[in-house]
Design a protein around this nucleic acid. Structure first.
Length: 1071
RNA sequence: GGGUGAUUAGCUCAGUUGGCUAGAGCGCUUCCUUUACACGGAAGAGGUCGGGGGUUCGAGCCCCUCAUCACCCACCA
């Protein structure tokens, strides 16, 4: 006996995965690596795969099968059951005469999907578990459907994440990063990663991911770097890359900048201080009043006229009070801004104030940024240390004075403050201001503060020269393609969200000051100091503003210079902008009309030789930029690099069929892949996007280490098996939603696997016992398989060494001899149709639910129970194969384990052919519902009777009912009653409430009497249902306006209920 | 401030273009150790679909409104 009494996943999973991998069944059938034996310059495998052989062969078979089976179907009057069997996607559900489609338009010839690369040296977490369950189910499903399926695995160097871990190690050993240069550090981290690597690959295998391992892409692979450099160069030439001096989000701990999207904002308590700035020149209007703190915190809202002295404390003075949470930055102030519409300060605009603690004077300017409602309405402007102030500075041409260094110390400040940390300096500034009587107010506030998402350090807005991507055109193009519905989103709402994001997208800082990453391939001319004169900073304006804006104003670039640079940009040739390799879908025109300023930096050159610190070109020496790329810059090429897309060759796997990833990186990743895909290839990189939500704990809480509620997927796999985990995590989950997950759902998955195992065990044992069972038609075939195997093998395991499926006429592989057999065929066909529909629409949870129900409630509970009597061996084989294949995408291991243990199957189920529709007699199938009703009624009544284990006590009596007569044995087995007989005289016992069958439970009168209450209750319940139906029919509008079939249905139901009530009443009167 | 989603059984969720007597899993109750499975079988209880309006013959579904919760983006001197 091959089948143990329960399924033990640990005994099978590793071996099965090993066998799959050894057999190479995860490789796509056609490859993107060129093979050109016939020397015609075209990849032979593409020629084969797409034009003649691979797929057409399959289709020819289908057409032949269709011709044969259609005739049979028609002669039997079974509408399209047989036709459906060869037209899996057609579902046969149109109007009666509609011709089924040949082939399957809903399944393309190739299916490609890339894995969001897990951290190369990390472990998989629950989110990866979900990702694999989703992606692998899709891959396996489309592989079974006959598509050349390519699931491309990846590994992420995880730039910043890994660097943080490594730097922590380094520090633990008493070193700092500054002891080494970038190349040394890179090599060290490389080795560090190499040592740790491999875990996650093993874990992906344990989860059953059917990915093509030979094609694993590491984010630092040479081809990735090559492609990234190619894109960067193209962007540089297209003027999409510029060197800008801007305020960037800088982590003083990790000494690197971040993109806006990487910043984590947290609400924190802080203090808002009011500081008095003295006017430096005597104001003409002496009546100006300084709004002062009223002693109880922040100042009250001043009155508009500002002259009602009785209402508040105010003084007439020659000063202005500003509010700030960062007093230490006052040394970097360039102005004080007031709102132009603020009557209180109108007269002060253009005047100057003297900065406290120093001798500088700064102007008072008018800017909308100052909110009259907030604080005193006057705000200090520190362009070098605040994002908003930076923009104000841009608008007013203010100098940017940096007073905080990258490591968080004060610079360019009076001697006594110089070198202090920002915290120390803040203390001292506050004390000194207080001593001078200039600190005039203090208020506790809650405000949002930017933090490093890794170490939690408060980020310092830092003025830095960095490489930026001008995203305007990229975003605009992406929006166009989105609005053109070229990508279908699941959930659909995310498309709108993405468009909104792209509309407001600001230029993208791609420079990172960490060594672990792809080096930026830019070199700076030796001896030419990079000053602000040759740095082109762009205002961080919105896209709308930017469209018309010509000249970004910096402190140093004068109007004259800007003009000359602008004309340089107009001269720039744009022939190769947006070139796409093979089709020109993106117009260059819009780009040419752009007014953007050229990035005409003669002192910077592009060069790929980033392994060299210094290079020479045309006799000029250049030195390497030491920064690396933001990882999202390279990750945005993921669909391109994973599929080996090139400008030269047609690639059947690009665009990807679907991009599956977490909804939380819609902006960071999906948006960027879309922009980059369009820019590089001219095509959207994927046709559909499926976004999954967060996996929460059982109580709907976010998993986190600090809460201690983290679920490790591998623990569950070890405990319950990979399939159980996959089934469990897919259940009750829908696209884009954060949803709870608990071990319980995995247990229920485990139970299903065990159920299926035991179903197979029963069938195998029936086969073993019935070697001489039903007459079986042996179909002659190529002799690849045993006769017994062939006869029932429409689900052809087509990928033997010969590479083609044995041709099998499955129309004669089995017959349906009794109505339960027709019924299960019908149910299985429905299951397949629903499954196909669910998969097409990415409704994984529903797909799994459908399978549960079919396997458990229908196949096991009704069909298999009935087969304990009928034993239709060919049909048992056929239907089991159907179920196994249908479940395989979700539970690959147990289905394969069973497949390998069954006596008649060959090959791998993983490469089997998707099951054909089963042939059956629909009238007979429908009739089986009568049996189910009878059995249910008997069971229900028995349970309602007083006493226990009634089934063993009372027999059944029927009155000349042919259906019951013919199915005595079956009814007896299903209801477990001891006897079933034709009534031999006057009716006796308890008449069952069946509308069309006269059936009695042979119980003593005493029991009948005790049952009376239950009966009365039942009559009332049915009566209520009847009333509701009658009410509906009594509404003339309903009869008039509702569709006829609904009205008819209601009438039928009324008739049925009336009949039922009359039976029940008869029964009652007998008591 | 802008946006998105959610609110259906004790819990976690389905409910696809409005047409059933609103479903599933888990949990719960009762019965059953029958040789595929106790990781099982059978039966059952449990919901005025967040509140209030409206449209319709008919609303969990469409419209308006209110409430609560969650998330995202921007801003917070």
């Amino acid at each position: 006996m091959k089948f143990a009494s329960s399924y033990e996943p640990n005994q099978y999973e590793a071996d099965i995965y090993g066998a799959w991998e050894a057999a190479g069944i995860f490789d796509p059938k056609i490859t993107t690596k060129p093979v050109d034996d016939d020397g015609d310059g075209i990849d032979d495998r593409i020629e084969d795969g797409l034009e003649n052989n691979t797929f057409e062969t399959v289709r020819d078979n289908e057409i032949e099968q269709f011709d044969e089976t259609e005739a049979i179907a028609e002669s039997e009057g079974v509408r399209s059951a047989a036709a459906r069997e060869v037209a899996p996607a057609a579902h046969g559900d149109g109007p009666a005469g509609r011709a089924p489609k040949i082939g399957d338009s809903s399944v393309s010839k190739t299916f490609s999907i890339v894995m969001p690369p897990p951290n190369a040296n990390g472990n998989l977490h629950i989110g990866h578990g979900l990702t694999v369950a989703l992606e692998d189910s899709l891959t396996r499903y489309y592989r079974l459907r006959g598509a050349s399926s390519w699931y491309i695995p990846g590994a992420d160097h995880a730039g910043f994440e890994t660097w943080v871990v490594y730097e922590r190690n380094l520090e633990a050993q008493g070193h700092t990063r500054f002891e080494f240069d970038r190349d040394e550090l890179y090599a060290r981290v490389w080795n560090f990663v190499a040592e740790q690597r491999g875990n996650m690959e093993l874990q992906l295998r344990a989860l059953g991911a059917s990915c093509s391992w030979d094609d694993l892409t590491f984010t630092l692979d040479e081809n990735v770097i090559d492609r990234v450099y190619t894109t960067f160069e193209k962007m540089w030439n297209d003027g999409l890359i510029y060197r800008g001096e801007k305020l960037v989000n800088f982590c003083p701990k990790h000494q690197t900048a971040f993109a806006d999207i990487e910043v984590e904002h947290k609400d924190e308590k802080g203090t808002l201080w009011d500081i008095e700035y003295k006017l430096s020149d005597e104001p003409e209007n002496n009546t100006f009043e300084t709004v002062r703190d009223n002693g109880s915190g922040m100042s009250e809202e001043p009155r508009d006229d500002g002259r009602d002295e009785a209402s508040r404390e105010s003084v007439i003075s020659s000063s202005l009070v500003v509010s700030t949470t960062r007093p230490e930055t006052l040394f970097g102030d360039a102005a004080v801004a007031v709102n132009p519409n603020d009557e209180r300060y109108k007269d002060l605009i253009g005047k100057h104030v003297k900065l406290p603690l120093t001798n500088r004077t700064i102007p008072i300017i008018a800017d909308e940024h100052a909110d009259p409602e907030y604080g005193t309405g006057a705000v200090k402007i520190t362009p070098a240390h605040d994002h908003d102030d930076f923009e104000v500075g841009e608008r007013h041409n203010l100098p940017r004075l940096q007073v905080i260094s990258e490591d968080g110390h004060m610079i360019n400040v009076p001697e006594e403050y110089n070198g202090l940390t920002t915290t120390e300096c803040r203390k001292k500034v506050l004390k000194d201001l207080k001593d001078q009587g200039l600190l005039v107010g203090e208020k506790k506030i809650v405000h949002s503060v930017a933090h490093c998402y890794k170490c939690g350090t408060v980020l310092e807005p830092m003025l830095k020269k960095q490489w930026f991507v001008d995203v305007e055109k990229l975003a605009k193009t992406a929006i166009e393609h989105l609005e053109n519905n070229e990508i279908k989103f699941h959930p659909a709402s995310k498309k709108k969200v993405l468009i909104n994001y792209l509309k407001g997208l600001k230029d993208w800082n791609i420079s990172r000051q960490i060594p672990w990453g792809i080096a930026i391939p830019m070199f700076h001319q030796v001896g030419v100091e990079e000053t602000s004169e040759n740095v082109h900073s762009r205002p961080s304006a919105t896209n709308e503003e930017r469209g018309s804006e010509v000249s970004p104003v910096t402190t140093a670039v004068g109007a004259e210079q800007a003009e000359s640079l602008l004309s340089a940009s107009r001269r720039r040739p744009a022939d190769d902008l947006w070139s796409t390799g093979r089709d020109e879908r993106v117009e260059n025109e819009s780009f040419l009309t752009s007014n953007r300023l050229a990035t005409d930096e003669p002192d910077w050159i592009f060069d790929r030789r980033t392994n060299l610190k210094e290079i020479e070109k045309a006799g000029v020496k250049y030195v390497r930029d030491e920064d690396t790329f933001d990882t999202w810059f390279s990750s945005s090429h993921w669909p391109i690099v994973c599929t080996n897309w090139t400008e030269e060759n047609f690639n059947p796997y690009y665009p990807l069929n679907v991009m599956e990833t977490g909804a939380d990186i819609l902006f960071a990743w999906v948006a960027r892949m879309l922009m980059m895909g369009l820019y590089v290839t001219g095509e959207v990189p994927f046709k559909e996007v499926y976004l999954h939500g967060l996996v929460l704990d059982a109580h709907g809480q976010k998993m986190s280490k600090s809460k201690g509620n983290v679920i490790n997927p591998m623990d569950l796999v070890t405990k319950y098996g990979s399939d159980a985990f996959r089934l469990g995590i897919l259940r009750g989950r829908s696209a884009g939603m954060n949803q709870a997950f608990s071990e319980q759902s995995v247990i229920s998955g485990r139970n299903l696997c065990n159920k299926l195992w035991n179903i197979s065990r029963l069938i195998q044992s029936l086969i073993d016992e019935n070697a001489d069972g039903k007459a079986e038609t042996i179909i002659e075939s190529e002799g690849v398989r045993s006769a017994a195997a062939r006869e029932v093998a429409p689900a052809a395991h087509g990928d033997g060494p010969a590479g083609r499926a044995p041709k099998i006429d499955n129309s004669s592989a089995y017959t349906t001899d009794y109505m339960g057999e027709d019924w299960i065929c019908r149910e299985l066909n429905n299951c397949l149709s629903q499954l196909e529909d669910d998969m097409k629409n990415y409704r994984f949870s529903e797909a799994v639910e459908t399978l549960y129900q079919t396997i458990w409630d229908k196949y096991a509970d009704w069909f298999l129970e009935s087969q304990k009597i009928y034993k239709n061996i060919p049909l048992l084989k056929q239907t089991l194969e159907t179920l196994l294949i249908a479940l395989h995408p979700f539970a690959p291991f147990v289905t394969e384990a069973i497949w390998q243990n069954l006596s008649w199957t060959n090959g791998f189920i993983a490469t089997a052919k998707w099951p054909a529709r089963l042939k059956y007699d629909p009238i007979s199938a429908e009739e089986f519902e009568n049996i189910r009703n009878i059995v249910s009624e008997v069971r229900g009544t028995l349970q309602a009777l007083p006493g226990t284990n009634n089934a063993k006590k009372y027999g059944l009596l029927f009155n000349n009912d042919s259906l019951i007569q013919d199915n005595q044995m079956l009814i007896k087995v299903l209801t477990k009653v001891p006897t079933i007989n034709n009534l031999d005289g006057a009716p006796r016992g308890l008449r069952l409430a069946l509308a069309n069958h006269e059936l009695y439970l042979d119980v003593p009168e005493k029991v009948v009497t005790e049952y009376k209450d239950a009966l009365t209750e039942r009559i009332l319940a049915v009566g209520r249902e009847l009333d509701a139906l009658n009410l509906r029919m009594s509404n003339p509008n309903y009869v008039e306006r509702a569709p006829a079939h609904l009205v008819k249905e209601t009438q039928d139901q009324i008739a049925e209920k009336e009949q039922l009530i009359s039976r029940l009443k008869t029964q009652q009167s007998l008591i």
